[in-house]
Simulated scan of single mutants.
Amino acid sequence: MRNENWMDNSSVRQRLTAALTEASASGKALANFMLANISSLPFETSRSVADKVGVSELTVGRFCRSIGYDGLKDLKERLKDDISDSPWLIGDRLRDLQQKSSTDAALARSLELAVASVVRVYEHAHTEAWNRAAKRIAEADRVFVAGFQTERGLAEAFVHMLRYLRDEVQLVDIAGGNFAEVLLTDPAGCTLVLIDARRYSRQSQLLAAKAAERGMPITIVTDLYCDWAASYGDEVFAVPTDLNLFWDATSGMWTLMQLLLNSVFAHRGPSVEERLNSVASLYESFVGYSRGPK
């Protein structure tokens, strides 16, 4: 039976956002997936959603009823008001690429999904959570960044670029096996940026749980399917990674992190230019650029 406790004027986005903290584990996973994939949700079915999230079709229907809809079909009907603005305003070069890809259905679908992933990243950048995370990363006394498995490379690149903007940025040591630098430091003035995608590292969830337990703010960059991120993250930025390719693609996650660096730069203010020049000068002294001074 449909849950009648919801206000009639609450939007689909509002109900899904509330479910991130109020629903069961499977409900949180469904809410996370629907929010992150909301532009293409009208084209999904109960079965396709169930397969992508890893739950049953009955669970999808039960979740929709728990947030006040008769089922997924009813939710999608109400969703029309939420996504009236179309993200598919593309230039001539993209149209040309679409036409070239039209003879290869798999490639054409991958292109659509890649564009949708970028759109989702820029949607994140217009939220209060985004501004809050960027401001904290810009102003915290210390910033820890952790990534595991293939996402370790994203973490390393983010740390490298963030150090151009500020000091006290540390890539979390995963070889020591204890994360003491994060968990034994005073959490006041510190923040943790955690990057992970399926199949998720056990260490990633444990680190998030322990850091949250100590009261350290956490920003999590992940994919659409992570059902534990909302339990620990002060901000969770979920990005589509299923681009119809052999491997899940984390390119959208890196696009998000580059955009986040841009926002951190804006929060740092004019003084950041001096640090950028200083770091570049040090690099020139120790390594050198291809057209640097002889």
Rank of each mutant, 00 (worst) to 15 (best):
R163E: 12
M7N: 06
D242W: 02
E156A: 15
T103H: 12
C64I: 09
A208M: 15
G54T: 09
L97W: 00
P240W: 00
L162E: 06
S101K: 00
S48Y: 09
R163P: 03
A266V: 08
M1K: 11
V236Q: 11
Q205H: 05
V60M: 09
C64S: 10
E139A: 07
R132V: 03
A133P: 07
P293V: 11
F43H: 01
G91V: 07
E156V: 14
A175Y: 14
L107E: 04
P42R: 01
A129D: 14
D8K: 04
K100S: 01
R65N: 15
R132A: 09
A18R: 12
G91T: 12
L94C: 02
R198H: 13
G176T: 07
A180C: 08
V279I: 15
L261A: 11
S117H: 00
D8Y: 05
I67D: 14
A155S: 09
S101D: 01
D227S: 11
L183Y: 14
H160C: 07
I90D: 02
F237D: 02
T127P: 07
R132F: 04
F158V: 02
L184F: 06
E44C: 04
L30G: 04
A280I: 07
K294S: 07
R95L: 15
L206N: 10
E235W: 07
L259A: 08
I137G: 05
T241G: 01
S263Q: 10
L260Q: 01
S278Y: 10
I220E: 11
L206S: 10
F33N: 03
N131H: 06
F246R: 14
I174W: 15
L94S: 02
S281L: 11
G215E: 02
V12K: 05
N244G: 02
I38L: 12
D248I: 01
Y200Q: 08
H124L: 05
V145Y: 14
S66T: 10
V221Q: 12
E4C: 02
F144K: 12
Y289R: 10
A134E: 11
R47S: 11
D81L: 05
S263A: 13
L206H: 13
E22H: 15
E4F: 05
S231I: 03
W130C: 08
E22R: 14
A19W: 11
